[in-house]
């Protein structure tokens, strides 16, 4: 059993949304609403409880003229990028989950056990990527399962299988990290200078099992530039809580001990 990962290479993505649909199909996800957004061709707008793969559409630049627009262009481009749960090495959702519903699988993915989740909603605010969400009518939290069921059966995830252009590559994590590096070299050599790997290794997230190659800034793709796992705040929080508790205890004890009225000494009027 190996530790697996995704490398989603946006420079190969044609925006067909096959990944998005294959995921919904495989996982039997209900409809996510019929809203016309006007955001290019993106009408599902983001990952959520009922969209576990999501394809972003970014129109950059204006007024393409001549024959100079296209995938290499710096004047006008339409970039597509398929987003997914990052399956963080240090996963905010997993750490936060009070029921132990969220677990790390043998493949390295982060998995919500649907029979355990009680819908407390804490993972929702614990994810630095805004991935997991509670489905209102169901009450439980949902996100990408990393196709745990398929991986168990020796299959690749449905989204990767559906991707016609190998934009979504699935494989062994170290292998993919290496390939990501090579791909960046290759793209740079082709004059695509702003291509970058997104795999927050330097932050407390400690890397992800869903890496991306895209052009431009993470913010363009609605991704945090330097995501942190919220557990980094625990120490400060508990220190403050301890201080608060100490103050409370001391203050209240002091108040009663030295200022308070003993029985007999004063006393409250009977009700």
């Amino acid at each position: 059993m190996s530790t697996t990962a995704f490398l989603t290479d946006s420079t190969l993505c044609i925006g067909c949304k096959a990944c998005e649909v294959a995921c919904k199909e495989w996982n039997g996800i209900p409809g996510d609403g019929f809203t016309f957004t006007g955001f290019s061709y993106d009408n599902t707008a983001g990952l959520g409880h009922s969209t576990w793969r999501h394809v972003k559409f970014i129109e950059r630049g204006s007024a393409p003229t001549g024959a100079d627009a296209g995938y290499r262009s710096n004047t006008f481009r339409w970039d597509f990028s398929s987003d997914v749960c990052k399956h963080c090495e240090n996963a905010g959702c997993l750490e936060a989950c009070p029921t132990g519903s969220i677990v790390r699988t043998e493949f390295g993915g982060v998995f919500i056990q649907p029979d355990v989740c009680n819908g407390c909603g804490y993972c929702v605010v614990a994810c630095p990527f805004g991935v997991v969400d509670r489905r209102p009518d169901d009450g439980r939290a949902f996100k990408c399962t990393f196709c745990y069921d398929r991986q168990k059966a020796g299959l690749q995830p449905a989204c990767a299988a559906a991707c016609p252009t190998r934009s979504i590559q699935f494989g062994e994590i170290d292998d993919l990290r290496r390939r990501a590096g090579e791909r960046i070299e290759e793209l740079r050599a082709r004059g695509i200078e702003d291509a970058a790997v997104y795999d927050p290794l330097e932050t407390s997230v400690g890397g992800t099992h869903a890496m991306f190659i895209f052009r431009g800034d993470p913010a363009d793709y609605n991704l945090p530039a330097s995501p942190e796992v919220p557990t980094i705040h625990l120490r400060a929080g508990w220190q403050s809580a301890a201080a608060a508790a100490g103050l409370m205890l001391a203050g209240i004890a002091f108040a009663f001990g030295s200022l308070g009225e003993r029985r007999g000494r004063s006393g409250r009027a009977a009700r």
Binding site: F39, G48, V125, G216, D217, A219, N222, P224
Partner: peptide, 10 residues
Amino acid sequence: MSYYDLPLLK
């Protein structure tokens, strides 16, 4: 550039 001013977080 942000992404259609959509929130990043849930």
